[in-house]
C-alpha cells in the first residue's frame, strides 16, 4: 500500500492526484473523457423520447400543429434565454477556476444556480396551466379549452354539456402529444434539478477553496453536463413550442 503513496510523494498536493493515476494530466484527461462518454449515454437516454416524438410527429402532423398551440411561446422563449445565460455563467465558472479567481468562481456558480431555479420556476408555471386545463396525461386527461382559450364544452339551454361550436375540436390523440411533452420536458427538468444539486455541492467545495488552476476537473466536467442540458433544451424549444 505504501508503494503507491511513495510514488506520488513528489506531486504537489494541490493537484489532488488519485493513487491510480500517473500524472495530473492523465487524471484530468481521464475525467474529461469519462464525462464525454457519460454525455453520450445522456444523449442516447433522451434519444428514445426524440424517437417517440419523431414517429408521432411524422405520422400525425395535424395533432402536433394543433396541440403546440397550447404551449406558451413567450415563457418558452424566456426559459431558453435563462438557460443560455446559465450556460454562459457555467462556462465562465470554469474559466475562473482555471485562473484561480475564487470570488468569480463562487459568483458564477451562484448565478448559474439562480438561473436554473428561475428555469424550473417558469416551467412549473407552465405545468400548472397545463394541468389546470386537463392536459396532464393521467386518468383525468381531457382538455377543457382549445389552444385559443375557448371552452371546448358548453352547457346548452336544457343544462346538458355539449361541444362548443366556437371552439376548434381537439384531435383524437391529444393525449399522446402531451404524453410526449411531459415526458420530454419532465426528464429534462429532472436533469436540471440534478444539475442544481451538483452545482450546489460544487459551490460548497468552492467555498472551502478546493478548486484552483491545478485542480478544477469537477467544475469543468459538471459544466459539460450542464451544457448538454442546455443543448437538449435548444432542440426541445423549437420542436415543441414552435410548430406551425
Amino acid at each position: 500500500m505504501s508503494s503507491a503513496a511513495d510514488h506520488h510523494a513528489e506531486v504537489d498536493p494541490a493537484y489532488r492526484l488519485a493513487h491510480h493515476f500517473e500524472s495530473p494530466e492523465q487524471q484530468f484527461e481521464t475525467g474529461k473523457f469519462g464525462m464525454w462518454a457519460f454525455l453520450v449515454t445522456e444523449i442516447l437516454f433522451f434519444s428514445g423520447l426524440f424517437t417517440a416524438y419523431s414517429v408521432y410527429r411524422s405520422n400525425e402532423a395535424d395533432l402536433f400543429s394543433y396541440a403546440s398551440g397550447y404551449l406558451d411561446t413567450t415563457l418558452g422563449c424566456i426559459n431558453t434565454a435563462v438557460l443560455i445565460l446559465s450556460s454562459l455563467t457555467m462556462a465562465w465558472a470554469v474559466r475562473c477556476a482555471q485562473l484561480g479567481q475564487q470570488r468569480g468562481l463562487k459568483f458564477c456558480l451562484i448565478v448559474t444556480l439562480l438561473c436554473a431555479g428561475g428555469f424550473m420556476g417558469i416551467k412549473s408555471v407552465e405545468y400548472h396551466h397545463k394541468i389546470h386545463n386537463g392536459l396532464f396525461p393521467n386518468a383525468h386527461f381531457g382538455a377543457h379549452e382549445d389552444p385559443d382559450g375557448v371552452p371546448l364544452h358548453i352547457t346548452d339551454e336544457s343544462g346538458a354539456t355539449v361541444a362548443n361550436p366556437a371552439a376548434r375540436p381537439a384531435p383524437e390523440n391529444l393525449r399522446s402529444f402531451f404524453g410526449i411533452y411531459f415526458c420530454m420536458t419532465g426528464l429534462h427538468g429532472l436533469h436540471v434539478l440534478i444539475g442544481m444539486g451538483v452545482i450546489f455541492w460544487l459551490y460548497l467545495r468552492a467555498r472551502r477553496g478546493e478548486f484552483g488552476p491545478k485542480y478544477f476537473g469537477p467544475i469543468d466536467f459538471t459544466a459539460l453536463y450542464w451544457h448538454v442540458v442546455d443543448l437538449i433544451w435548444i432542440f426541445l424549444f423549437p420542436l415543441l413550442y414552435l410548430i406551425h
Binding site: A52, N138, F141, I180
Partner: peptide, 14 residues
C-alpha cells in the same frame, strides 16, 4: 422502461 412506467402509472398514450 421509464416510458413503460409512465404509461402504466399515468397513461401517456405512447
Amino acid at each position: 422502461l421509464l416510458l413503460l412506467v409512465a404509461e402504466r402509472a399515468l397513461g401517456v398514450g405512447i
